[in-house]
Design a protein around this nucleic acid. Structure first.
Lengths: 106, 106
DNA sequence: AAAACATTTGGCTATTTTGCCAAATATCAG
DNA sequence: CTGATATTTGGCAAAATAGCCAAATGTTTT
């Protein structure tokens, strides 16, 4: 693996890492259904609003979402909607794991 | 978000987290092309073999790969091949980011 | 049984990530 | 301008992750 390839894998990993947090993943899924402002997340997520803001910032830094200020509020939208397409496969992994677990109990 | 839903997002995040490391992501991509033994990774990755073993263990714990001992060697294979399908989208994110960067320089 | 080989595990430190609080910034209402 | 509201930023402590070394385990060869 040369330097260029290494950079590529680091870039890819950064995108995945941004999604690899329960709260951020949930946020991304919500945004897949349409834009939301920070205040809506504050209402629905049990965490300090500064924490929520930082999570959104991580998603933005990774290039997954974008923000737009309108009045007092900041609205976030998905920038690359396809990102959520693979969640069905992630769910398949989890189902597989559950099956394997169940198998152990037989 | 109730407790059950929270568990689900934690499980999904765990799968993503397992892939969210340059070395592990590279390993997963290699395995998408067919099985490999730990020793092959040791030859190709610049890291201690214990580190490599631990990375593979993380992928296994997440349910992404499975292992099989044959003789002295341990062979790893993808357990849920679809996991790599979304990489084209992750690449799209990166391309988008690059475009945005380029735009800044104009 | 001993030596050699392949891999995993335990333990430790360095680094990164999380999440809260407090403070700063920006916008709007009066 | 002042105060209220929405959000971001800085700073810090706690928790999680990464990666190396050494030791343990399992397998084959001699």
């Amino acid at each position: 693996m040369n330097a260029k390839e290494k950079n590529l894998y680091e870039a890819k990993a950064k995108v995945l890492k941004a999604l690899a947090h329960p709260t951020r993943l949930w946020m991304a899924e919500q945004l897949s259904a349409g834009e939301m402002c920070v205040c809506e997340f504050v209402d629905q997520v049990e965490a300090d609003f500064s924490t929520i803001s930082k999570h959104l910032s991580v998603l933005k830094q990774a290039g997954i979402v974008q923000d737009e200020k309108r009045g007092k509020q900041v609205y976030y939208t998905m920038r690359v909607p396809c990102v959520m397409n693979f969640m069905s496969c992630v769910e398949a992994v989890i189902e597989n794991n559950a099956k394997a677990q169940a198998e152990l109990l037989k």
